[in-house]
Design a protein around this nucleic acid. Structure first.
Lengths: 205, 205
DNA sequence: ACTAACTTGCACAGTAATGTGCAACATAAC
DNA sequence: GTTATGTTGCACATTACTGTGCAAGTTAGT
């Protein structure tokens, strides 16, 4: 039935294709199969040996990418909604530095739907977080919770994907931006981050 | 030399093509010439009678679009930087159709450069506004002026192009978002807009 | 009503991309 | 060292798009 484990070089090549696809597609969501294969040091023909078609490759990128993002939502346990949002933003930022992919693929009409579906758990977490913050008075209440949640999602995507990651304290800027959207004044955000320097610093293992 | 004025139906068709291109391209920056022509109720062949090639059409869209909202920057004369930013955001919101196009085209590697160049005046205005707001203490100073200006640009684009325009007080949400990025707390933005209801109301002539 | 201006469909050439079959070659695994 | 597994180049069919030429039609302007 299950034939056998793939050869080691084949496994490595498969991973190489995925890595190449991530960088190529985040630069240009319409990057051709040929470009992806070449930048993985392989031939176009070989790529088709690993993935049935373009869709299959994209599907795998979206699913595995989304899993990583979704996992971050569970890692945040702060009681303070402001802190929780700040930490989530910081984690997403660090993850996105490696994988800007979600933002790039979401731009493609054909994949925006499956990307959204794959990220449903993260979206759920954000929605819950927003409601909590609104209830305890730390987030803005001048718009409905659903609207605010959507705004946070969209702006996060923008900040994460279109901010120069090499700028000094780029992560800090991303976090401050998200807190601002939630309704905090910049001084409040500043105070919060000063009291919890671990949020924007952690490089993790 | 200058042959003669174009026939009236030809003028209308040309305008129709531009309008169709705006909506088609903001939905999908890679919309084909055929789709654009068809959605303008014309044949592909006719479009080529009005524009030499795809580039010429895009060029015209970018240039005329940019002119429209470069003009908006001049229309804002408030001394209060917060008010000025709010009003500019509101004006841009009302030009949403054009802004969406800019956002869509800016995603295309080939046109991001000429779009940026065409929007230089608006960018200049925003930069000046940001510096003014930082100096008088109404905007955040926890990041460099250039960074803040860029953030405002990017977030504005996102909010204007990806917010449901049919939602109640969508314009208000857009303006509040931009003010939040500038550093205002949501209550401060709320107070400001309450004191100047004309900002989010004006439909203009 | 006449004419220049405009539109259209069709045929055509060119380009770029996807996906497949196949034979020759390379190499990891045993 | 043998062999199953993997890689490659090439040819090929297919699709989708851009841009042009031209002859036949339609219509605005006078």
């Amino acid at each position: 039935m299950t034939s056998r484990a793939p050869r080691s070089d084949a496994q490595a090549n498969r991973a190489g294709i995925l890595a190449a696809a991530r960088t190529a597609l985040s630069a240009d969501p319409h990057a051709s199969i040929d470009v992806i294969a070449r930048s993985a040091g392989l031939s176009r023909r070989t790529l088709y040996g690993h993935f049935a078609d373009r869709e299959a490759l994209l599907r795998e990128l979206i699913v595995t990418g989304a899993q990583r993002f979704n996992a971050l939502a569970d890692a945040v346990t702060d009681d303070d909604a402001r802190l929780a949002l700040a930490r989530l933003a910081a984690l997403l930022w660090h993850e996105a530095a490696h994988v800007q992919l979600a933002a790039a693929l979401a731009l493609d009409e054909a994949h925006v739907e499956q990307t959204a579906e794959a990220l449903a758990p993260l979206r759920q977490a954000v929605a819950a977080l927003v409601r909590r913050g609104q209830l305890d008075g730390s987030f803005r209440t001048d718009m409905p919770d659903a609207m605010l949640a959507r705004l946070i999602e969209e702006v996060s995507r923008t900040v994460v994907s279109r901010t120069d990651a090499s700028a000094p304290d780029a992560a800090g800027v991303a976090v401050r931006t998200v807190l601002s959207i939630a309704g905090l004044s910049w001084r409040e955000a500043d105070t919060l981050l000063a009291a919890h320097p671990d949020i924007t610093t952690e490089v993790s293992a």
